[in-house]
Computed example of a mutant assay.
Amino acid sequence: MTFKFKIQKTPGALFWGNVEEMLKENNKSLRSVALYMRDGVNDKKTLALYDKLYRYKREEINPPNVLIDGVLNYLKKFDENLMVSDLYSDWSEYDAKN
């Protein structure tokens, strides 16, 4: 007996996959998100925030609400209609239809 099933992405993988795609579309990086969240101050706290964002992305961990809100607010600069649910949507189904 053979089972065919699709492995579902974790919420963290969905979130970071969509964030990376949106950042790539706008030629931005996680470093620019960290700078935005620290109001443009480039110091040790900004570097620590970048390291935290990078670690969550690399390990595909769902970030805490404070980080989600900061990333969402940064990405709203490029898409004013963006919602949190968009960051957790599975774009592969959408891409397959188009």
Rank of each mutant, 00 (worst) to 15 (best):
T2L: 14
T2A: 15
K6N: 02
T10Y: 08
A13Y: 02
F15G: 04
G17W: 06
N18Q: 14
E21C: 06
M22K: 10
L23T: 04
E25N: 08
S29E: 10
A34P: 01
A34F: 08
M37Y: 07
D39M: 11
G40E: 03
V41Q: 11
D43H: 12
L47N: 06
A48P: 01
L49R: 05
L49I: 05
L49K: 07
Y50R: 04
Y50Q: 08
Y54I: 02
R55D: 09
K57I: 04
E60S: 13
E60A: 15
I61P: 00
I61T: 09
P63Q: 15
N65F: 11
L67H: 10
L67K: 04
L67M: 15
L67V: 06
I68R: 08
G70H: 08
L72R: 00
L72C: 04
L72P: 02
L75H: 02
K77N: 15
F78D: 02
F78P: 02
D79K: 03
D79H: 03
M83A: 15
V84G: 01
S85Q: 15
S89Q: 14
D90W: 01
D90Y: 06
W91P: 00
S92Q: 10
D95F: 12
D95E: 13
D95I: 04
N98H: 10
N98Q: 11
